[in-house]
Each structure stands twice: as C-alpha cells, then as structure tokens.
Design a protein around this nucleic acid. Structure first.
Length: 490
RNA sequence: CGGGAUGUAGCGCAGCCCGGUAGCGCGCUUCGUUCGGGACGAAGAGGCCGCGAGUUCGAAUCUCGCCAUCCCGACCA
C-alpha cells in the first residue's frame, strides 16, 4: 500500500485524497457525493462521538432522535433559514415504485405522489421546534437540553471526502431557555466544549470567534465558531454554536408561561460538529508517510509486530507479546497484537505507519534474549529499544507525550502562519501565501464581500479573545476597533 | 449550471491515428524459499473494452447519440 503517495509539497489536495483512501478511512460510493466510511475511519469517528457525547451529558444534555424527513411547509416558516438552505435540499416527492412498461426496471409510480413533499433534513431546527411547541408550556419545562446524533443531506455541487459530502454524520444540539442570557451562556458553553475537545483530544489548536453577518447560520442571531488552520495554510471551520434568539420560537410559536405568569417566546440555541472533524484531524497532523493520529482518538494505541523465522520462535514471541498486551490493557491502552502469518513485518510496519497508529512495538528473537522491545513512535518516526520492565507505564507516558507533542507542533505551525497586516497590498500578498491574517475591518458586509471577491479570503472569525485595538480597515480605511481573522477557507 | 478531460481485469494504465486472436504493472490464488522496514521464484485465475445505434466481411479502434465519473469555476459545515 501507498508506495506512490504524493508529498504535501508536491500536491496537497492529492495528498489528502490519497491519504483518506490509502489509510482506509473512507471511499467514494456509487452515489455521487456520498462516501462510504470504512472501519478504520468509522472507529475514529466513534472515538470522537464517544468523547463529545460524554461532554454533552456532563453538562446536562440528553440524546433524542428526530425524523430524517421534514414536511416542506415547516421549512418556509423561518425566512432566513429557507433562504440559506433552499438551494441544497433533496426532496422526496413519491412513495412508491412500479415495474416499467418494458418490464426491465422500475419507475416512479406517478399515482403515488405525496400530498406534501418531504425535505430530507439539511439540519433539524424546523422539525425540532415544531415538536418543542408541544413540549414546552411553563418555565418549569425549561431549560430543554437535547442533542441528536444523525445524518443530514446538503446537495453540494463539489464534494470531498469528509470535508464536504452530500450526506454527512454529525451531532446537532437544540436547546430552549427562559432568558436571552441563559441561551447566550449555553451557546458559549458549547463553544468552550468544542474548543476543549479540539485542543485536548484532537490536539488541534482553534480560535474561538464570532462569525460575521455574512458567514453566520441561516436563522441565527449570532454564530460562534471554532476555526483551525490546516497545513496548507487554509482555514477550516471545525464547529459552530448558534444563538438563535427567538427566531425559531416565533416561527413555530413556542411560548412558555413565566414565573410572572406572562406568556413569552423561548430563547434558543443550536450547535453542531460533523464528520468534517475527520478532515481537520487528518490535515492537522498527518505527514508524507501517511496518517498521524493523536493517541486520544486512535482506535488502536499500540500495534505489536512479532519478528520470527519459524513457528517455534513465533510461539515464544507470542507468549511475551501477549504478556505485554495484557499489561498495557490493564492501563487502559488499546493494543493489537498482529500475529498474522500472511504478512511480513516490513509490510505491517508500513501499514500501521500509514494508518497513523501512535506506537508500534516490534519483538524479535534478539529482544527475547535481552528482555527488550523496539518502540517506534508515529509522530516523530523515531525508534528506540526499551527494557520490557514496567513497559506499561513507559508506554502510557509515551502516549501522553505524543499527544502533547502533536498539539505543540500544531500550535507552533499556527503561530508561524499567523500574520498581522496593515496595508491592502500586504494583505493581498499574504492571503495569496496562506495562513491566518489578522487585519482591521470596518464591520460592513459590503467590505467583506469586496475583499472576498478580490482575494477569495473570508472573515473566518471575529476572535473572542482578541484585544481591542483601534485601527483602520484594510480595505476601506474606515475606523475599526479590533482585528479579525481572514483566511482562505475550506 | 458553465469550461476541460476520461470511461479497457479489483486498482492504475497502454492499445485507438493506421479496423484483423485484448495487453502491461500492482493486487489476487497455489507451491517453494524467505521473515529486525513494503521479499523472491515458478505456476495460475480474472474482460459484454461505459451503454445504444450505425459503417464494415470484420469495431476497444471509425461515425452519431446517450449515460457516468473526475478536474477547474460559482454555492457551502
């Protein structure tokens, strides 16, 4: 596998595509724009899901499930929302097929036309708020903190595995609150969870920020985001959290009786991360030898490869390897002992390397004599010989170290590729080269769009942690209070 | 939806100009030797040449139509 694999330098886009395929993460399916997520890729997604799900539940959220189909009429109730999604909706119009006239196939049965067409959810705000109307009567029913893990469909023109597919997997949280303050607090709480997850689990440094009016979610009052920088200098929106105000409550007539016995509209949030995180994970750490996974999201932490000349040797090595495996597993480390006789050691080394397994152990006859094991780390590709004594704690420490190293590398990369720019010429030049560009902006959509038109760069985030600093808009020269993050984006 | 390209074995491709027995590499199967970084040898299996019409004694190859996919743009988590 992966002998003819391009380097990032040669062709970044090709490198990404080949990596996803050759690391067995996903492949294109028979359905245009839709991917098959393969076991190795799905195992990583399950790790992502598992951790996020814990974090949501720890903050009081519960999972539920709403339908895939949304009646078309629901969609038109929130004007900005329709506007934003109308162009990419798949629509179900019929509910039956019949044999074709020539008997060779099936055709849509025109007699089975739906009275009301169904939209395949591009997101679930409408069906959920229509449901919440019945769930919420009093302040005692609030807050309502619900999440769902689901698939959604957005009919994209151009797709790329994980980064943009017509169907993707995600979680969408939908909450209802008594007050504006509480809803805003929820929006930011989730943003913090996303940022913490990105940094601690994905080893991916992110900027927390606010989206400009132009970039915000269709139907939101404010959209917050976490924004990451990929190795090719392009930005990737890794998660969004929306303060929806009372927009959906008004559209779907969701009111509650307050403690003061007044009928009021509830305040809402919604928030999501998707399988796009897989794309972020891949592009953040991987190298010209293949995928690199942070230990906290690696389905397998350690692969053990035996090296032997005959079956007696294999038996002796297996005994030792299984001992090590047990000791590691007792510490919560996931281990695969690969004693397949159908592949050679060199082949296995390459495979685990390409698939991003953080640590590889090799045990041969020499190690057996010396009480040692060869330890190879995926992040640095370094090999070292360890005494087997206390191996479990040594590996545990190594895994922590790898996790930390990946984060620090990604952070250093981001810092090296973040530039403050104060002139229009300098701005254009830097955007061309890539990276995050911190520049002043006059706050108008008009200016943002003109900048996009001329440079293809968009405002990725108005940073929450950004220092206030008076300046002049890079494009219009109008006064500005704060630098915002510009970049070309995925 | 505009511009460009491509459909031949599981994958990657050659053959097409100039019509005449469908080929190469990888992968796959079996056997043997190997095994501390992608082993080697030998023997095999595998095809409606995208689909449909036409021209021709004869079409992967020429003509027309259709379909599909990929790349580049506009739209997007």
């Amino acid at each position: 596998m992966a002998k003819d694999f391009p380097t990032r330098e040669e062709n970044y886009a090709q490198w990404y595509n080949d990596l996803v395929i050759k690391a067995d993460l996903a492949e294109n399916s028979a359905v245009r724009g839709c991917m098959v997520i393969k076991p190795h890729g799905y195992a990583i997604w399950e790790k992502i899901q598992g951790q996020l799900d814990k974090m949501f539940k720890a903050t009081g959220h519960q999972n539920a499930y709403f339908p895939l189909f949304i009646p078309k009429s629901f969609f038109s109730k929130e004007a900005a929302h329709v506007e934003g999604f109308a162009k990419e909706c798949a629509v179900v119009t019929h509910y039956r097929l019949k044999s074709s006239e020539d008997g060779k196939g099936v055709v849509v049965d025109e007699d089975a036309k739906l009275e009301e067409e169904l939209i395949i959810r591009p997101t679930s705000e409408t069906i959920i708020w229509d449901t919440y109307r019945n769930w919420i009567q009093s302040y005692r029913d609030l807050p309502l903190l619900i999440n769902q893990w689901a698939n959604v469909v957005r009919w994209e023109m151009r797709t790329r595995l994980f980064l943009r597919t017509a169907e993707f997997l995600w979680q969408e949280g939908h909450t209802a609150h008594e007050t504006k303050e509480e809803a805003v607090e929820e929006t930011l709480k989730i943003l913090d969870i996303y940022a913490e997850f990105a940094e601690k689990w994905m080893a991916l440094p992110v900027h927390k920020g606010l989206k400009s009016a132009n970039e915000k979610f269709a139907g939101a009052v404010d959209t917050y985001c976490i924004e990451a920088l990929m190795q090719d200098g392009k930005a990737l929106q890794a998660g969004t959290s929306h303060f929806l105000g009372q927009n959906f409550a008004r559209a779907f007539d969701v009111k509650f009786l307050s403690k003061e016995n007044k009928l009021e509209y509830v305040w809402a949030t919604s928030w999501g991360v998707s399988t796009r995180l897989m794309g972020a994970l891949i592009m953040a750490h991987s190298d010209d030898h293949g995928l690199v996974l942070p230990p906290k999201l690696a389905p397998i932490h350690v692969a053990i490869v035996p090296i032997y000349k005959n079956s007696d040797q294999l038996a002796a090595i297996s005994e030792k390897a299984n001992e090590i495996k047990k000791a590691l597993e007792a510490k919560g480390i996931t281990v695969k002992y690969d004693d397949r006789t159908t592949f050679k050691p060199g082949w296995k080394f390459s495979e685990y390397e390409f698939k991003g397994i953080p640590v590889r152990l090799a045990i041969g006859p020499r190690d057996l004599e010396n009480g040692t094991v060869e330890v190879a780390r995926r992040d640095t590709l370094e090999k070292e010989t360890y005494q087997i004594t206390d191996i479990e704690n040594k590996i545990l420490h190594l895994l922590d170290h790898i996790q930390d190293n990946l984060y620090r590398k990604a952070l250093a990369f981001r810092e090296e590729n973040t530039f403050g720019v104060d002139t229009w010429e300098g701005f254009k030049a830097q955007i061309e080269k890539g990276g995050f560009v911190l520049a002043h902006w006059d706050g108008t959509t008009e200016t943002e769009l003109k900048i996009k038109e001329e440079t293809k760069a968009t405002i990725r985030a108005i940073p929450l942690s950004g220092k206030m600093e008076a300046g002049k808009c890079i494009f219009s020269g109008q006064p500005s209070e704060q630098r915002v993050i510009f970049a070309k984006a995925y």
